[in-house]
Design a protein around this nucleic acid. Sequence first.
DNA 1: TAAATAGATATATTTAAATCTATCTATTTA
DNA 2: TAAATAGATAGATTTAAATATATCTATTTA
Lengths: 116, 116
Amino acid sequence: MEKKTIEEIKKLIECIGLNVDVNEYIKELKKNKDKILSNTDFKKMVNFHKALGHRSRYLIYNLIKKKKMCICELNVIIDLAQPTISHHVKILEQADLIEGIKNGKFTHYQIIKEIN
Amino acid sequence: MEKKTIEEIKKLIECIGLNVDVNEYIKELKKNKDKILSNTDFKKMVNFHKALGHRSRYLIYNLIKKKKMCICELNVIIDLAQPTISHHVKILEQADLIEGIKNGKFTHYQIIKEIN
DNA sequence: TAAATAGATATATTTAAATCTATCTATTTA
DNA sequence: TAAATAGATAGATTTAAATATATCTATTTA
């Protein structure tokens, strides 16, 4: 065991008290961690929050929520280049928040997961 | 009006149809946009999602949710340097998701906003 | 079927976030 | 009150995300 880890564990012992089995305690914490990480929704939830955790995307999501829109409509009111808007829309789409319905030349995006 | 904008609007006219007042339509869309951006919760919501939209922070949040913890406990089970963990914890704290309660030398962090 | 075009993709560049090491601060306790 | 220490902060570096320009693709329609 490396020096750094030994000091971390010394610190932990002081924190949790001497009357606790440290190895058992750490084992329990690591079990919690593994359980969280192995949850099938873990990545999905992180991506969901990451998708909405950006000013432009949160705006686009809420605009589409008010009224389904195509890229060309978003492009008129948002001060970003068309490929940038397409990029953000794609991230929202991949997070299963919106979907695009092709209609002739135009693709209309609409909400599929409602967030209040 | 610049060339780029003119083409954007031409495109929009084709999309929404000729029997619609384009200026009125754009005005309405921009009103929607301004309403969304001026919402007092806009920044708060983006920060909330940004806070949870990162692997390590989503893990830390869920660990604290299972059991209140101090930095030293997180440090033992997460493979990141102590200041990095402190940094992530601070972001969760600033998003009003968790709070730190000082107890002697140790600060125990606990959930204040439950997310399922 | 060939020109026009909505919007996607590729690639490069810029900007922001994550992470680290080193150091500081506030608190405890011997 | 001085040494010890939990965890916060500062600053530098690395990594990832945002954005732009240029180009491509799939579809439409004249």
